[in-house]
Amino acid sequence: MHNQTPVQIAWVTRDLDATEAALSALTGARKWVRMPGVHFGPDGCTYRGAPADFVADISLSYAGDTQLELIAPVSGPSIYTEFLDRAGPGLHHVCLAFPDVDGFEAAVAAAGRDGNPTVMAGTMPGGMRFAYVSADHAGVPYLEYAYLPPEIHAFFDHIKQEQK
């Protein structure tokens, strides 16, 4: 279906400080950029088919060309709180980025046709679109598909340059 290298590995945690420190030591990530209180609201995000309303603290870094993302839920139900409740802190998803909206939408639609439903989706400020699909029955809790417009690429490139 896709011939892409994942661009991001993400963990869900209750303690950003501890997870940043562990991943810095294990991967060589140098600087983390925190985005506290990111609101995923009902106008831009769905969770299990209904309007979403939750807040998470997010931290980003890089190990080489791979983005590392840490997500610490703050309030409201989400796939992040579900994961913490079910499995505790840990590896949550990998992300595949598509070069255009059409490729992103085609991948999400194909996953659904193949029995891997979208469990959370939305559009972030700056136009980034994301959809988490699940193949939980096969041991794949979440795979994130994303479309990253030029402004978001520039922001991520800035974070990557901070590692040098």
Score class of each variant (00 low, 15 high):
residue 114 D to N: 06
residue 48 R to Q: 05
residue 60 L to Q: 08
residue 34 R to C: 02
residue 78 S to E: 13
residue 137 H to V: 03
residue 9 I to E: 03
residue 89 P to K: 06
residue 132 Y to Q: 09
residue 103 G to N: 03
residue 13 T to A: 03
residue 12 V to I: 12
residue 105 E to I: 01
residue 47 Y to G: 08
residue 38 V to M: 15
residue 163 Q to W: 15
residue 138 A to K: 11
residue 67 Q to W: 00
residue 54 F to K: 10
residue 32 W to T: 06
residue 72 A to G: 12
residue 139 G to R: 09
residue 17 D to K: 04
residue 4 Q to C: 12
residue 113 R to L: 14
residue 115 G to K: 02
residue 115 G to D: 03
residue 12 V to S: 14
residue 141 P to L: 13
residue 142 Y to Q: 12
residue 155 F to C: 03
residue 7 V to W: 00
residue 110 A to H: 04
residue 132 Y to E: 04
residue 20 E to N: 07
residue 160 K to H: 14
residue 116 N to V: 13
residue 116 N to H: 14
residue 45 C to G: 00
residue 141 P to Q: 03
residue 154 A to G: 10
residue 133 V to N: 04
residue 106 A to G: 06
residue 93 H to N: 09
residue 162 E to V: 05
residue 34 R to D: 07
residue 138 A to N: 05
residue 162 E to Y: 15
residue 154 A to P: 01
residue 136 D to W: 11
residue 63 A to P: 06
residue 146 A to C: 07
residue 11 W to H: 13
residue 8 Q to H: 10
residue 70 L to V: 12
residue 84 L to Q: 03
residue 123 T to L: 14
residue 37 G to Y: 03
residue 68 L to F: 14
residue 77 P to M: 13
residue 19 T to I: 01
residue 63 A to L: 02
residue 95 C to M: 13
residue 131 A to P: 14
residue 18 A to G: 04
residue 132 Y to H: 09
residue 41 G to S: 10
residue 120 M to F: 05
residue 164 K to S: 11
residue 43 D to K: 13
residue 153 H to A: 03
residue 10 A to L: 12
residue 85 D to L: 06
residue 54 F to W: 01
residue 114 D to M: 10
residue 151 E to V: 15
residue 128 M to F: 06
residue 38 V to Y: 02
